[in-house]
Each structure stands twice: as C-alpha cells, then as structure tokens.
C-alpha cells in the first residue's frame, strides 16, 4: 500500500457516498445511468469472488464487501425506491457493445485460463469502460447537476491516482508491472479527460456543468 493507492481508494469511497447523498437528498436518481451502475455491480461481483479463496488484508476484504453491497444498494434505490425518477429513455447506450468485447478480451488476455482468472480479467476490462453509458447520457442531455459532476470527478480522481501508484510500485518493486491492470487503467482514466476539462473550467469556477451545444 502506498499513499497514491490509499488516496485513490478513499476517493472511490467518497464517490459512492456522494452518489448516495445525491440520491437521498434530492430523492431522485435523475441524471444517473442505471446501466453504468449495473455494470459496476457486475465488475465488483466478478472480481471480488476472490473473497472466498484469497485473503489479502482486513482493509482489502472490508473494501470489497463495501463496494459490492453499496453498488447493489444503489441499483435497488434506482429500480425500486426512486424508480419514477429514473428515465430509461435517455439511458440508451448499448451495453452489449461493451460486454461482448470485454468477454472476448478476457478470453484472450488473462493470467491463467481458469474461470476465476478469466472473470478477473473480464472485470478489469469492463470497469475500464463501465462509465461510458453515464458519459453518453451526460453528452446527450448536455448538462448535469453539480453534485453528479462531483460524483464523476471523485471516480475520475480515483482512477487517475492509480497511475502514480503503479509508477511508485514499478520503482519500488524492481520494475514490475501488471500489464492487464495498467493497460485497462490507462484507457479508463483517458475516458475522463473530456469530462475533467469541463469540470475544472466550469464547475470548479462556480458555473453549471453545461456542454456547448
């Protein structure tokens, strides 16, 4: 564990609390992509199956359980408690275009051709693109509530902090890297660049998040 990774994980935790806060205070999941949230549940369940056979640390196990539980809870809120505020007609990204390639990639690129390893690879590839339905929705509506942009920013910061974490590990662990995690992680961080541009130039200057028409 190093400071970059710890801050990254805390930023990931913060993003979830911001999202829960947004849904509960506005009593609405308007502007949140159900598809992206469902993909995150898929990612966490596929990856954290290792809770059953690998113990890393108490921190690691607690975080994994929290990510699974909170993502399922968010789906519940969107699908049941605040269902009327969820508008599927603007959440139109075709997720089969993400799932198909991720299945294929995980069958080709994995560290061992076993069920758990292929699922691990699949979860890494899927996480890297899981935000796309959300970004697509943002692009379509052209605007977002400020709190929703804080949620996305915290998620983006989490991914961005994993990059210095890998550089730090590369230096301190004798030039060792995890090629699947790093490649997918770089792609994932890249997806946030456009969003961050608008976030820093508008939202953090006190303006509303609006995309140019």
């Amino acid at each position: 564990m190093n400071l970059f990774r710890l801050l990254g994980d805390l930023s990931h935790l913060a993003s979830i609390f911001i999202l829960l806060h947004k849904i509960q205070t506005t009593r609405s999941c308007r502007g949140i992509s159900f598809k992206t949230q469902a993909l995150y549940v898929t990612v966490f369940v596929a990856r954290y199956l290792d809770l059953f056979y690998r113990y890393v640390s108490l921190y690691n196990s607690v975080m994994k359980l929290f990510f699974i539980a909170s993502s399922v809870y968010i789906l519940y809120l969107m699908k049941y408690k605040y269902r009327p505020t969820n508008d599927p007609s603007i959440d139109t990204f075709r997720i089969e275009y993400l799932l198909g390639p991720c299945v294929l990639l995980s069958l080709i690129f994995n560290y061992k051709f076993s069920v758990t390893e292929v699922l691990w690879s699949f979860s890494i590839f899927l996480e890297s693109v899981a935000i796309l339905p959300q970004l697509f929705m943002l692009q379509r509506t052209g605007e977002a509530e400020t709190i929703t942009t804080h949620y996305l920013a915290a998620l983006g910061v989490y991914r961005a902090l994993y990059i210095p974490n890998w550089i730090y590990r590369y230096i301190t662990e004798d030039g060792v890297v995890d090629p699947i995690a790093v490649t997918a992680g770089l792609v994932q961080t890249g997806l946030y660049i456009d969003f961050f541009y608008v976030y820093f130039t508008k939202v953090l200057q006190g303006q509303k998040f609006e995309l140019p028409a």
Partner: peptide, 10 residues
C-alpha cells in the same frame, strides 16, 4: 524486472 499480478489492488 518483469510482470507481476497485483491481486492486492482493489
């Protein structure tokens, strides 16, 4: 120098 699998990461 080489590849490793970082299964300790979340």
């Amino acid at each position: 120098m080489g590849w490793d699998i970082w299964k300790d990461e979340l």
